[in-house]
Simulated scan of single mutants.
Amino acid sequence: MKRMLPALLVSALLVAPATALAQPQGKHKHGHKHHGPPAAAWQHDYRHDRRDHRRHDNGRHLGWYKQQWRRGQRVPVVYLQPRYVIRDYRAYRLAPPPAGYGWVRPYQDRNEYLMVQLATGLIAQVLGY
């Protein structure tokens, strides 16, 4: 029995530093939680890939939408630049704008026009939407 006691003490001393230095699972050195993938992250889940391909719109841009301008809204400042403001409103068969207002064509490929207060960008009238 006396011979076993020193052997047990030596083994306890050898194991104690390893348990004292061990980090709790899921935490880093400074106590921050680990938010990465689990230990078996190297395994690839092929079901996930199939779901992604079913959700893809294949270039149809289904998430895109046409801007619906409304009276009382403000247009972005970029549309108040000279390339969007229509100077020859008669060529487009538009009524003459009041003083301080102008016709804006936000999309060059569409026949949609906005009468905008040029100082503030406030929309007074919407045509073609």
Rank of each mutant, 00 (worst) to 15 (best):
Q68P: 02
V116T: 01
Y84R: 07
A40D: 15
R90Q: 08
L94M: 00
L21V: 10
N111R: 07
G36K: 03
G121H: 04
D49G: 06
W64C: 00
P6Y: 07
H30D: 08
W103K: 02
A91V: 03
P6Q: 08
Q43K: 13
H32L: 06
R105Q: 14
L122M: 13
M4E: 09
H56D: 15
A22P: 03
V77N: 10
D88W: 03
A99Q: 11
R83E: 11
H61M: 02
A40Q: 15
G36M: 09
A20K: 05
V78A: 13
Y84N: 10
Q73S: 09
Y79L: 12
M1N: 09
R74F: 09
R51K: 11
N58L: 12
M115F: 07
H30R: 03
K2E: 14
Q23H: 15
R3P: 01
A124I: 11
Y84F: 14
H34L: 08
W69C: 05
W64M: 08
K2F: 12
Q81G: 06
A16P: 04
R83V: 01
Q125L: 13
R90N: 06
K27C: 02
V85M: 00
R3L: 09
L127C: 02
R90C: 00
A16K: 04
A20D: 03
L62S: 12
R50E: 09
W42I: 06
L62F: 13
P76W: 10
V77T: 11
D88V: 04
A39Q: 07
P76N: 12
L94K: 02
A41Q: 12
S11P: 03
Y92T: 07
M4R: 11
T19L: 15
G59K: 09
N111H: 10
A7M: 13
R90Y: 01
S11G: 06
L14Y: 04
M1A: 12
Y89L: 02
Q108L: 06
V15D: 07
P38W: 14
I86E: 02
P82K: 08
I123D: 02
H53L: 15
P96H: 13
N111C: 05
L8M: 08
K66N: 03
A40P: 12
H34S: 08
H34F: 12
H61D: 14
Q68S: 06
V85T: 00
D52S: 06
L5R: 10
T19R: 01
L118H: 01
A39M: 11
A95S: 13
H56F: 15
G63T: 10
L13I: 05
V77K: 13
P6W: 11
L14D: 05
R110W: 06
Y107K: 14
H28G: 07
A124V: 13
P98R: 10
M115A: 02
T120C: 01
A18D: 00
G102T: 05
Q67E: 12
Y79R: 15
A20I: 12
R47W: 13
Y101Q: 14
Y46R: 14
L8T: 09
G100A: 05
A91M: 02
Y107H: 14
G72R: 05
L80E: 04
G72H: 03
V75E: 04
